[in-house]
Write a protein that binds this DNA or RNA. Structure first.
Lengths: 235, 235
DNA sequence: CGGATTCTTGACGAGAATCAAGAGTTGTGG
DNA sequence: CCACAACTCTTGATTCTCGTCAAGAATCCG
């Protein structure tokens, strides 16, 4: 409805990698940016809520988000992390009058580019590749969810934890003096690995004793990923 | 798998319900049928294999299929059942040069309608709604997989089993004199509910003793679904 | 009838959730 | 600068679920 007119075109964060945008031509990307609103996001802010009407397509510019579903007893069923360049709110385009499938919450300070319903409709006709890009993204999510499914069905909690560490390191780790640093609290790891807080603490302690990693408050440091990869040569 | 060459246009099985075809216009459905091959399928036949090049889009006409993934240790990670009207091999259209994401195996005698790569390309230009239908199907699969994920993360095996019974009854149950009949062996139920054969047998026995269901070889009869729905008011 | 499936039941043990208690960190305000 | 509160993490004891193994019963089929 209300696209704010801007004197300057919204800019992409420098160095942004996005498989979503890569599916579009440079010209289409420019058209997209012209219709975009840039919005700041803060931790714990809910960016979309499952079941609510899907009215906004958006792209994470900077920061980090968590994608999950709510169970009826109020717990979060973790599905995946979202990193810069990931596109969300795809239901807005895929299924005409639609509702969001999942809830997404910011976990870090950051920013997004957003297009409302009217903008999306305009974009579809002006960007022929857009619908293809959306489909690709949906099918990527499907694939990664199938992978998650495999991890979640691993027999032991230890195997799941190892896998979650490796995946999280890949998605949101950054290198530090002692190795790859992953800024996650035990509670968040437990959520992602689908196990209790205590089981996480126990195994991390064990691995710390054997020198595979170091733990700090809210942070895990992995000198090397290789030991964990070999723990689970599965699915 | 033997191919029937036909002088006449391939016909849809009578009474087929397909949300996939419903997304197309009657004219488009006719175009589709003209380009289709009808193929018989038999139990244990592998209809597509994960990782193999996606060269065929197909629609289940009659029978039943199992969609799963293989783990590295050779086990099957069950994802869903496929019923008449469901479309598969969508990767053939969604992602240009693609590979199948999942393995699909027939579990009952039946038939499919199939389109090879060349036919798909021809169809895309002649059926504008086709790509929308494919997207919708993919996004449906995503949604149902998220649901599966929720079921699979339910704490107890009992809860999972109850949910699987209800879902299976909905997908492949047919009504009989004593209630809804579901033709599944304990082994298949165990696969779908992600638990051991023995746990399935134990809980089914218990429910049979309390009169919630009756068991026969290869078949479960549910007089009513309601008790199971209330066991798990979750996800 | 004999053999192959399919299902049942019991005993056992490994793994993980829960509960409880406390230790270690971080941040805040006096 | 210290004291206190809030948060995060650790560890042990306990309980329970479920997978495994073993044995055998029921059903189906030629």
């Amino acid at each position: 409805m209300r696209i704010k007119k801007r004197a300057v075109v919204v800019a992409l964060p420098p160095g942004l990698k996005s498989t979503f945008l890569d599916a579009l031509t440079p010209r289409e990307v420019r058209v997209l940016l012209k219709g975009a609103r840039s919005v700041r996001i803060s931790p714990h802010e809910v960016l979309q809520q499952e079941g609510a009407p899907a009215r906004r397509l958006w792209l994470l510019g900077t920061g980090r988000v968590a994608v999950y579903r709510l169970t009826r007893d109020g717990n979060k069923l973790f599905l995946r992390w979202g990193a810069p360049g990931d596109a969300f709110g795809l239901a807005t385009i895929v299924r005409a009058p639609a509702r969001y499938l999942v809830t997404i919450e910011a976990v870090q300070e950051g920013s997004i580019l957003a297009w409302d319903l009217a903008a999306c409709e305009a974009l579809i006709s002006r960007c022929p590749s857009l619908s293809k890009a959306v489909n690709r993204a949906v099918s990527k999510y499907l694939e990664s969810l199938i992978d998650m499914f495999g991890v979640c069905r691993l027999r032991t909690a230890e195997d799941r934890l190892a896998r979650v560490l490796v995946e999280s390191a890949g998605q949101l780790g950054h290198s530090g003096p002692e190795g790859i640093e992953v800024d996650l609290k035990n509670e968040e790891v437990a959520l992602a690995a689908h196990m209790s807080l205590f089981t996480v603490a126990r195994h991390l302690s064990k691995w710390q004793r054997t020198g595979l990693l170091k733990k700090y408050r809210g942070k895990i440091v992995l000198p090397s990923l290789s030991p964990f990869g070999t723990i689970t040569p599965d699915t």
